[in-house]
Design a protein around this nucleic acid. Structure first.
Lengths: 141, 141
DNA sequence: ACGCAGTTTGACAACGGTTCTCATCTAGGA
DNA sequence: TCCTAGATGAGAACCGTTGTCAAACTGCGT
């Protein structure tokens, strides 16, 4: 009846395509869009259908293997997240420079504030953007 | 956040459409998509083109009159933000229930962590989602 | 009030990312 | 090896958003 949110992947086969996608992601610590991954695989002669890339990325996201965030223009970008600790980014609105930051404080706050309202299975998205020092300087008039 | 908040935009004309859009937004404290606003206006016999809704929403967002966030499926949603204090939402993944929460702690953390890396003109987006008590209960059986 | 010039609007086409369809293929157990 | 449920791929469909451009409108000077 309720088969939502399964954490096991017993029902997912290790196919060539799936492996290629997982590797493409684990190869970098940056966020990459489905289209970028598809292009990267093609460049590497790994012929994988675009739909397959989307499907697997979504499946992996559902299983918590990868993080997903949305860029400012609505494109979904994925990043392998099993490797390192949970962290966030501070992104420069002007040049795109991204700095990783950890935030135990936020994690705890999110948990606390959600629990306070009876919510469970909390997840959160924290995006910080601003102007990096260089861009701010270039912009001064 | 030391940005001059102009109430008048010298370079933007107050048209019937623009006013209608602004009112549609200020009428609620919730986030609404461009399409929803367009539909709401139509229902109210305010004939405004969809493209116009998008254009104005973007212009208002650019001027800092409204906040924009992306829903999980990539749709842009807008909320009037001049009226009340800055706050965030805890949303139920299952039923969509949204609870408003304030978070001075996060605001300060965002400022601090960003400044630490030389960033200025900080903005942040914090989205928390989970399962509300009701949905969690419904799911356990 | 009138006319002009620059904005803004609206209907619709175009676009781009994502999802769906379905015939075909494949992994893995019998 | 054979079978079968799950996986794939090519392309169409989908849908939110953006671009196009002639027509309508606004602010401003006259």
């Amino acid at each position: 009846m309720s088969e939502q949110l399964r954490t096991d992947r017993a029902d997912r086969r290790p196919t060539r395509q799936r492996t290629a996608i997982a590797e493409a992601l684990s190869g970098t610590a940056e966020f990459r869009s489905a289209q970028e991954i598809h292009a990267a695989l093609a460049r590497r002669d790994e012929r994988v259908g675009l739909a397959t890339v989307y499907r697997n990325l979504q499946a992996m996201a559902g299983d918590g293997e990868v993080d997903v965030i949305r860029t400012a223009d609505g494109e979904a970008v994925y990043r392998s997240c099993a490797t390192d600790d949970h962290h966030h980014h501070v992104v420069c609105r002007s040049c795109g420079l991204a700095v990783e930051v950890t935030g135990d404080a936020v994690e705890r706050w999110a948990e606390a504030v959600a629990a306070e309202h009876g919510f469970t299975e909390i997840r959160h998205t924290v995006e910080i953007d601003g102007l990096c020092a260089a861009c701010a300087a270039a912009r001064t008039r």
